[in-house]
Design a protein around this nucleic acid. Structure first.
Lengths: 260, 260
DNA sequence: ACGATACACGCATAAACATGCATACTCAAG
DNA sequence: CTTGAGTATGCATGTTTATGCGTGTATCGT
């Protein structure tokens, strides 16, 4: 055996495996024939390596070489698909409001969840949320720090609620709060369909300097059994509704309305 | 004995061990044959050395030599795909352990995440977890109640950690705890790669009547920087490893071992 | 449909391995 | 000093592992 200048740095099988994985990570693919030459071993050996790595799920074996494991996008629930365009605009406008260094309280809900997608990769802030889906969506963000609020999981809404959640909220001071809106009415106020959620939202309002409501047009002017607070608790409203008749009642209460 | 210019500076076993570790640190790997020549001892002696070092978790033994302990930062999403079959068996066995009415603490980790899929639809229990993905996986379950532990989101592991998490754990008494295992060694104990996580796991052990460890074979006999506790803290171990040589050290510590 | 390439399988072999045993050394008690 | 226990080492042994090669099969691109 002649020492190959490139090879025989790697004499151990495990070492080769590791190296193949790294190579796959940086190059995006590997070819069996190429690896054979690179490590000065027979293609059979390489094939055996690839087979092993594939069997333990570390790579995806294909004819001629191997590819990285499929990185499939996070499987989001179908409900997210509703009203995509309107929610996109609202979420983007909300994401733009966040400044570096701020502590931001973000409530659950599908609209709020989309905020995660529109946060700048450069943003360095602390996001506090009672929504596990939102927390997970932010897990890939390079800079934001995520504080998950504990509590009972409300299965329908996918948010945590209850006394633990409220206590945790009470112990923070947020610069900004994006409140999820189930329904909003200029006179009745902010209402939700769940008692526990109402208390959580009240606590969120109380813990934040500035409260912003995100709401799609279909939910405006409606009401639900449990009251969170008057509409005037909101400093700003971001919505896709554009009908001035609908928006004016809020403006007249001193709420800044942003229509996307 | 003939004095070797390079060798016999090192005559003691401990000296050799120390030197091997240093070499491993600087070179990234060591070869048994190479070391044999370097220290002018037989390969058998080197093999014994390597075996000892591996047994105490300081190196990773491979055919032909040894490598540093694996520090393999595989992203969470792709980690989910690794060793699917083995994780399935382990998770199923774990799910079967849960009885109606119990309060069960489930740690993060990809193996534990799969437990959710195997819970009977009839089961009525309270699941407490610091893993948002697990909480979400359980959101569709008809009967279990889910308590999400709050805290800072550890992005890599997708679990919450920190003082909030620990406080929340301390306030509950669980019947059962499924501890996620990053690595387990019969003598070194349960270890993890993150300091915060170590504290959370400690708290989990303390809050549970019965602690069960779920671990796939590849993680057995390895160790990481931060100690959670002795292996004997586990009442039961569920693994896909079936090699009696690997399992016996745990059995002899009084741990019930279930091999799937 | 066709060669060309990549592949899986079985077999052979050399290296690496575990194990048991014998030897040599150390240290301390007799 | 002698003796004996404990340890480290080397050697002989049979076993396991990693690898390469030959054969025949599957897959690819045209």
């Amino acid at each position: 055996m002649k020492p190959d200048p490139e090879a025989d740095q790697i004499a151990l099988k495990e070492e080769r495996h590791q190296h193949i994985l790294e190579l796959l990570g940086s190059e995006g693919r590997v070819l069996a024939a190429d690896l054979s030459g690179r490590y000065s071993v027979s293609e059979d050996t390489i094939r055996r390596d690839l087979r092993e790595l594939a069997r333990s799920g570390k790579i995806r074996r294909v004819h001629g070489g191997a590819l990285p494991r499929r990185v499939e996008p996070v499987p989001f629930v179908s409900r997210q698909q509703i009203d995509i365009e309107s929610k996109t605009g609202i979420a983007r406008a909300a994401a733009d409001m966040i400044r570096d260094g701020q502590v931001v309280l973000i409530d659950g809900g599908t609209t709020n969840l989309r905020i995660a997608s529109y946060l700048s990769r450069e943003l360095s802030a602390t996001i506090v949320t009672n929504s596990p889906p939102l927390a997970l969506a932010l897990a890939d963000h390079p800079k934001v720090s995520v504080l998950m609020l504990g509590g009972n999981l409300h299965k329908e809404a996918r948010v945590t609620t209850g006394i633990e959640t409220i206590r945790a909220i009470e112990s923070i001071r947020a610069d900004l709060c994006f409140l999820g809106m189930c329904s909003l009415h200029p006179e009745v106020g902010i209402t939700v369909g769940d008692r526990e959620e109402a208390y959580v939202k009240k606590a969120m309002i109380g813990a934040s300097t500035e409260v912003v409501g995100l709401i799609s047009h279909g939910k405006m002017g409606t009401s639900l059994p449990y009251l969170v607070g008057a509409a005037s608790r909101l400093k700003r409203l971001i919505t896709d509704a554009s009908d001035e008749d609908v928006l004016h009642p809020y403006r007249s209460q001193g709420i800044e309305v942003t229509s996307t």
